[in-house]
Every structure is written in structure tokens, then in C-alpha cells.
Design a protein around this nucleic acid. Structure first.
Lengths: 139, 139
DNA sequence: TTGCGTGCAAAGGTTTTGCATGGCA
DNA sequence: TGCCATGCAAAACCTTTGCACGCAA
């Protein structure tokens, strides 16, 4: 697990953002705006490069939600074994909200896919699409 | 379910392509190239506009695979109830292949999400990410 | 001093949009 | 004739890349 050769101010700024928003979602642009409001300029390219590195290290997860919205990232900290993970994402196609779900039963899917289909599921990367509770009731 | 007001030659061409490739995936660009090879020019904008209409009608499904590859479409024909569907997609993060899976057990996920989480899953739109059989063995 | 990290601007690729033209009814 | 659909080009969008400069070690 190779860390950056140099420790820069920008890296620490981004890391402080990650710590503060742990458990929630953000885009590269979110980070840029966050610091812009504090009179700090962070190049968007730098943010993407740092995030890419953290994704490779497994500390940050990346989601492709829609084709025309920016990629969502999530800071999860140290790398976790997929098997142990019960953390899933539900995306509502109607209101656009992204939900977190912790659920044993969903973890069984991973087990099933592995045994029956030889497919090792990556729950960090997988997003379930559909209509959420609120939007179902309205319709 | 509002159909096109006018029936055009381009619509029929696209429909003929859909019938021929039923059950497999394609991109907007695939359609354009397919007809270009037959000396037929179809504007890419026209293809996107027709596909968008068919997606709205539920005859064509759209997948967001990666952020930097083109969207995948699939022709499924007349609208189907989600509940009855056992059709799932697995995307390998390593080799990039997209697999179709027909599986009862996976249909139970939809049931679970509905009952326990009030979330109506759209299996057409949902893609499972992970590592496929072949790539697991190589590693 | 060495060379990695940064920031700017430009490029990259897919999808959408504006607008004049063509074709369906 | 009236109006929708088409096709071209330009725009829009997010992300990556090239390059010169700055900064860490």
C-alpha cells in the first residue's frame, strides 16, 4: 500500500474534509466549493488526482450514479473485506435520493452470487435502483 | 403511452435494429455504425432522441455502466412488471464484461427490499459490480 | 538539488440542444 | 399546409492530461 511520496498541504486539506464528512457522499466539486467558501483555492484536477489515489488504496469508494451527474465518492477509511460488508446503497430514480442500508439479508446476496455464479460482489460499488418509500406513496 | 405522432423511416430502421439484436446490449454509436456500414446515415442525435422515447415507454432499458463509456441500452419489448422479473446484470470491474443472469434467488432481493425497506427495485436498471469467475481464477 | 504535486487551460468523450430543412399526414 | 422529426454543428458536462512552476525532502 504505497502512500504519497510527499505530504502536501492540499492532501491534508482533503483529508480533513474526508474526516469531517465521514459516512456521507460528496463529489469532487463539493470539495472544491467547500474550500472556496473558506477562501482556499484547490484545483479540481488536484482533487480528482487525490481521490483517485485514495480509491486505489481502498480508503475512498467511487460510485457511478447517473451518466450526467458527477461521480459520488464516499470515505470509508481503511480497506474492508467485502465479505464482512453489509453496507448497501439504494438510489431512487424518482427523487434522486441516495439511501444507505445496513442489512444482513442483503449480505446473503453476495454469498449467493459467489457460490452459484462465481461472482465476487463489490457492495461498495453496487447501487440498487428503484423507487423509494416516499415516492411510492405519493404515486 | 403516447407513441410518435409521425412514423418516419428512421424510426423503422431503429426498430429493425432492435428486433435483430433483442436480448443483447448496444450503444447509440453501435446503431449509427451498423447503418453506416449499410450506406445509411442516421444522425446520432436522432438515435438518442428515439432511444430516449423508447426508454420512457419502457420498451428499452438504459444502463449507466461507467462514467467514461457510453450508456448501454437493451431492447426488452413491452413493459414488464418488475416483480415478475428475474433478469439481472453483473458487471466485472476487471475485464469489463457484462453478464446476464436469470435467477430466482435474486428475485427474492426485490421482495425483501420491498417488504423491509419499502423500496421498489428496478432490476432493469440495477447492475451488480464485482469480479467475475474468470478473473477471480486468474488472480 | 531532485523530482513529485499543483494549478491552469485545453483536450477528451458522450449526450443534449438550437436551428434550418425535410418529410409525414 | 401544418407541424413533427431529422441532421448538422455547437454547446454542455464531467474528468483527464500536458506542461510549467512551486514546494517537500
Amino acid at each position: 500500500m504505497q502512500k504519497s511520496a510527499y505530504r502536501t498541504k492540499q492532501q491534508e486539506l482533503i483529508f480533513s474534509y474526508l474526516e469531517e464528512t465521514k459516512g456521507s457522499h460528496f463529489t469532487a466539486e463539493d470539495i472544491r466549493v467547500y474550500f472556496e467558501r473558506r477562501q482556499i483555492t484547490l484545483g479540481i484536477a488536484t482533487i480528482y488526482r487525490q481521490l483517485e489515489k485514495l480509491v486505489t488504496e481502498g480508503q475512498v469508494q467511487k460510485y457511478y450514479i447517473d451518466e450526467h451527474s458527477a461521480s459520488c465518492f464516499e470515505y470509508t477509511g481503511e480497506k474492508v473485506s467485502y465479505d464482512a460488508e453489509k453496507h448497501f446503497h439504494l438510489k431512487c430514480q424518482n427523487c434522486g435520493k441516495l439511501f444507505h442500508v445496513e442489512c444482513e439479508e442483503l449480505a446473503e446476496i453476495a454469498e449467493h452470487l459467489k457460490c452459484e455464479h462465481g461472482f465476487e460482489l463489490n457492495p461498495f460499488r453496487t447501487v440498487f435502483y428503484g423507487i423509494c418509500k416516499d415516492c411510492t406513496q405519493v404515486k
